[in-house]
Design a protein around this nucleic acid. Structure first.
Length: 590
RNA sequence: GGACCAUUAGCUCAGCUGGAUAGAGCGCUGCCCUCCGAAGGCAGAGGCCAGAGGUUCGAAUCCUCUAUGGUCCGCCA
């Protein structure tokens, strides 16, 4: 996975932090500080208030107690030494012992040069150190097209996978096909009805069947494949074949939906492939060997009236030994597996495939499932493999500010395809990431297409398009604007406060990638891009009032190139961020 | 009865895993287009971070209760 020092070289905050640590080592060597201090909690981060300088460190406060010294004394001594570094123009002790650093303009100007040199790889991190991580998302039942709820999970999972890849993990994107349960039998029977219909028969869709129109074509295709062979036949004759035929057809449909959204899955993993192959048995055997499988009777759930509750002995997984609240059944009273059993086997398989970390993306309605799944992975891997489960909350649909109720019966059931067809994949993806994954999301079909600052999709795209516009104009004016030329421009001309502010924002990108990846939260990328765009638009508008801030300076190619370098660097970072989100950067707005 | 998630400006939401005077958009008030796209920008007002305890140099952030809202709770996936 490349160069261990790569991110450290690009992440200015990491650079300054290591400068601080080196300086502290010197103080220890000189006897100013005692030995054996823990420096892990020391940070170098941008202060909230720009008046506090460019970067702040808590080193003095963190070390005060273990060193037995006053924080301000440590800070003062540290300040004097840090001031010796060429990058540091001032170091002031503030508040309870903060050390506020101001960095030389050349440091910030170097950021733009770094971006132009690295391109969209600027900010790529080695946080993952090449560890193998598996991200499982969507995993919708193969019984119909994806709906709007799946869309959020699909976008979130996909962006998370890209983010982790960017942060240096070896990522596998995976989809678990629930093709082993009773619901695929229901699908098969529904398709059979459509098959009969294709043969001209009158059919009725009772409760417990899928009446959706999308199965008409499948029934027709079945007829074309088997002709009249299944007419007037018992279920035993056709069920298994129709089930396979139908799930294949549904997965084709689902894959087409995902493709329309720009989601590419590496591995489609079939639940059915676990049955009859001994794999479920093997997973449970592993748990049994660890003493975690037993026959027992569960307590009835409290509070809720246990109408048909009867104490029943079941085969249970002792998930409480790994943090769950109650033990969970793995076998039904009829001797069949519960749905949990193949899930255990599936995760056992992931563990055996050698992943260092697993991530499951579920809908919020599966929240009750989190603890038992974590317990299973913990038990199966002896605590060696981590499982993080991210829940995506509901998407509430609106049209022109009015709630838009989904109902299959009323025909207002909104599919992923509906959304993509109406607003496009780029807009859909960005909007799905404008909320934290576990917060409800309002999706208004009209507002997401609005062209205003209210709409972050537009706002970010607009910034990128403005840069493209500048590049076009500059080229027309005969100014060379290829990245190599811009990177070699005299960037010391970028000395205005508004320009430095934008450079500082760009400098945060590598740091943001790491924190977003650490918390598995791709929405942070979307929020960062919005802030970055805001900084850029601010500078742009100042050019309206102060001509010297415009990117293109008449009759001064050198200055123009320095300023365009800044614009271009902004566009590169926007493009990199949008790339993680799976959104195409716009060259122009129309 | 229990579990999980939420609660931050009038509204919709961020808050960088414990840092300084808590931010943004919308709405409100006042400004800025002979000018690389004003589809924008600048400034101002607006807060007991649901409440109460605790942990420590320091809490919106961590712990414990409480209140409200959402999701879920054996043989459905």
């Amino acid at each position: 996975m490349g160069h261990p020092t790569r991110n450290a070289a690009m992440n200015l905050f990491a650079q300054i932090r290591s400068l601080i640590l080196t300086t502290l080592e010197g103080m220890v060597a000189d006897g100013v500080l005692p030995e054996g201090l823990n420096v892990d909690p020391i940070t170098a981060e941008p202060p909230r208030d720009a008046a506090h300088g460019d970067m702040a460190t808590n080193a003095a406060m963190v070390l005060a107690k273990p060193a037995g010294m006053k924080p301000r004394d440590i800070a003062q001594a540290l300040a004097e030494r840090l001031s010796m570094d060429a990058r540091v123009t001032s170091a002031e002790v503030a508040g309870p012992g903060f050390l506020n650093l101001r960095l030389a303009p050349s440091v910030w100007q170097g950021i733009a040069a770094g971006v132009l040199k690295e391109g969209v790889d600027f900010g790529r991190a080695d946080l993952g150190t090449g560890q193998k991580v598996n991200v499982e998302y969507v995993s919708a039942n193969p019984t119909g097209p994806l709906h709007v709820g799946h869309t959020r999970g699909a976008v979130f999972g996909d962006a998370l996978a890209s983010l982790l890849d960017f942060a240096g993990f070896d990522v596998t994107r995976e989809y678990y096909i629930n093709d082993g349960g009773a619901q695929v039998d229901v699908l098969a029977r529904s398709v059979y009805l459509r098959y009969l219909e294709a043969h001209g028969q009158e059919v009725a869709f009772e409760d417990g069947t899928y009446p959706g129109d999308y199965l008409i074509a499948v029934g027709q295709a079945l007829k074309e494949k088997v002709g009249a062979d299944y007419l007037d036949q018992d279920e035993g004759v056709w069920l298994a074949n129709v089930r396979d035929f139908s799930t294949d057809a549904m997965m084709e449909l689902i894959k087409a939906d995902l493709a329309a959204l720009g989601v590419e899955i590496d591995v489609f993993y079939s639940e059915k492939s676990l049955y009859g192959t001994g794999r479920i048995e093997a997973a449970l055997e592993d748990l049994k060997n660890k003493g975690l499988i037993y026959e027992g009777v569960l307590e009835p759930p409290k509070g809720k009236k246990p109408e048909d509750w009867e104490p029943r002995e079941q085969t249970l997984f002792k998930s409480t030994a790994h943090g769950d609240d109650v033990d969970r059944p793995v076998m039904k009273s009829d001797g069949g597996w519960t749905y949990f059993a193949p899930d255990i086997a599936y995760h056992y398989d992931k563990v055996q495939r050698g992943f260092d970390a697993l991530i499951d993306v579920f809908g919020a309605d599966h929240g009750g499932y989190v603890k038992r799944m974590k317990a299973a992975v913990s038990a199966l891997s002896d605590g060696q493999v981590s499982l993080d489960i991210k829940l995506t909350q509901l998407v509430k649909l609106f049209k022109n500010g009015e709630p838009f109720k989904m109902s299959k019966r009323a025909g207002t059931f909104v599919t992923l395809r509906d959304v993509v067809d109406q607003v496009g994949a780029d807009v859909t993806r960005f909007v799905m990431l404008t909320r934290k994954n576990d917060a409800m999301l309002d999706f208004d079909f009209d507002k997401v297409l609005e062209q205003s600052r209210e709409n972050p999709v537009f706002y970010v795209q607009y910034a990128h398009a403005r840069v493209a516009s500048v590049l076009r104009k500059a080229t027309e004016a005969g100014i060379a604007v290829d990245d190599a030329t811009l990177g070699a421009a005299d960037l010391s001309k970028l000395d205005h406060e508004a320009e430095l502010a934008l450079l500082r924002k760009l400098a945060e990108w590598p740091r943001l990638v790491e924190t977003a990846a650490r918390s598995n939260e791709p929405h942070r990328v979307a929020f960062y891009l919005y802030e970055l765009a805001g900084e850029f638009h601010g500078l742009w508008n100042r050019g309206n009032e102060d001509g010297s801030l415009r990117f293109i300076q008449e009759d001064d190619a050198a200055t123009s190139q320095a300023k365009i370098a800044l614009a271009r660097a902004t566009a590169i970072v926007i493009a990199a961020g949008l790339g993680i989100l799976g959104v195409t950067p716009a060259q122009e707005m129309r």
